[in-house]
Amino acid sequence: MADIFLCDESKDFFFDDDLDDSSSGPVDFDQQSIDDDEAFASMVERESCYFPREDYLFRFRFGDLNFAARTDAFDWIFKAHSYYSFGPLSFCLAVNYLDRFLSTRELPSGKAWAVQLLAVACLSIAAKLEETSVPQSVEFQVEDPKFVFEAKTIKRMELMVLDTLNWKMNAVTPCSFIDYSLKKLCDYHNDNFYLSSSSNVVNRSMQLISSIIRGIDFLEFKPSEIAAAVAISVTAEIQSLDIDKACSCFIHLDKGRVKRCVDMIKENTMNNRNENVNDEANTPSPFESAPQSQ
């Protein structure tokens, strides 16, 4: 039987005493659409407000942060998100909240319940902001979880996440840029927006995004760079493409960084296919199956 964890048992160890049920703040949640280069440039300028701490990736690579804990939290978000068939934006938002939280606060060492509780809170907040039909917080604990939390415990964790992130929840993620990036390449190819209108192309783009943000290697790139690289990679899968010229389409981004991200996506995809040629067909996904980055 799953364990029941009560918030009072961790109050002095994990939760802040100044976080109570009356805590509130101005939550920004309206997602801005990108219609032209000017709007894109504005979004690129704003995306830095939603980055994890600058040393986040460094601390993972040198063992100061628990990579396994992040992976466990990500996989739990992935599973619960798939269970409810939520949209891609809520998935990317939840992962953004997870990374920003972990870059700022340290989870209790050796406490597996804390990882699951944080994942529940991140997805619950993201779903409330983005989804039209949202289950009760306790219903996010799907498929026989190891721990089962009471609603008041989840709510307290949600408040802790909101407070830690300064109530800045309208995060800019790769999903924020993907439509614009695909349309930009459509203009480049003059193909009547086939790329951006095709559900297969959009789904494949979301597959790539969901797979590469699982690992830590792509944390070095900005969401706008990831979206551009994903759009280029997906386009290159279905038609010939001059990668260098395609990278140059995104005039507000560093061409070299976009190209390096494209190369990493290609290498990551090839490595996963070599490890298991059936991985893509057998891996569940919020958008469809996708190879996972290491």
Rank of each mutant, 00 (worst) to 15 (best):
E47Q: 06
F40E: 08
A73L: 06
F74M: 02
G63T: 12
T71I: 14
Y50D: 11
D37W: 00
F14A: 06
L57R: 13
V44Q: 02
D37T: 01
P26S: 05
L65Q: 14
G25W: 04
A80K: 07
Y50N: 09
Q32F: 09
F51E: 10
E38K: 02
K79F: 03
F51P: 00
S24K: 05
F78I: 00
D18N: 05
R46H: 09
R46W: 07
R61N: 14
P26L: 02
F29T: 09
Q32Y: 13
A69C: 13
R46T: 12
L19D: 13
D55L: 05
A68I: 15
G25S: 07
D36F: 01
F62Q: 12
G63P: 09
P26C: 05
T71W: 13
G63H: 12
P52T: 14
D35H: 14
W76P: 00
R46C: 02
E9S: 08
W76Q: 04
G63R: 12
Y50G: 13
F74G: 03
F40R: 08
D64F: 10
S22E: 02
E54P: 02
I34C: 06
A68T: 15
D55A: 05
D20N: 11
R70I: 11
M43D: 05
K11A: 04
D20R: 01
A68R: 15
S33M: 08
S48R: 12
M43N: 12
R59E: 12
I34T: 07
Q32V: 14
A73V: 11
F29C: 08
D75A: 05
S82V: 03
D72K: 14
R61T: 12
I34Q: 08
F14R: 06
A69L: 13
D75C: 10
E45W: 00
P26R: 05
Y50V: 04
C49L: 06
D18T: 02
M43E: 05
Y50P: 10
S48Q: 08
R53A: 09
F14L: 11
G63L: 08
D17L: 07
F40H: 04
E45Y: 02
F78K: 12
S48N: 07
N66F: 15
S42R: 09
D28P: 01
A73Q: 07
T71D: 15
Y83I: 01
H81I: 07
D37C: 00
F40M: 09
Y50K: 08
W76F: 12
F60E: 11
D20G: 08
D72T: 12
N66D: 15
A80G: 09
S24E: 02
D72R: 14
Y84W: 15
E54R: 09
Y50A: 07
S23Y: 02
F15G: 00
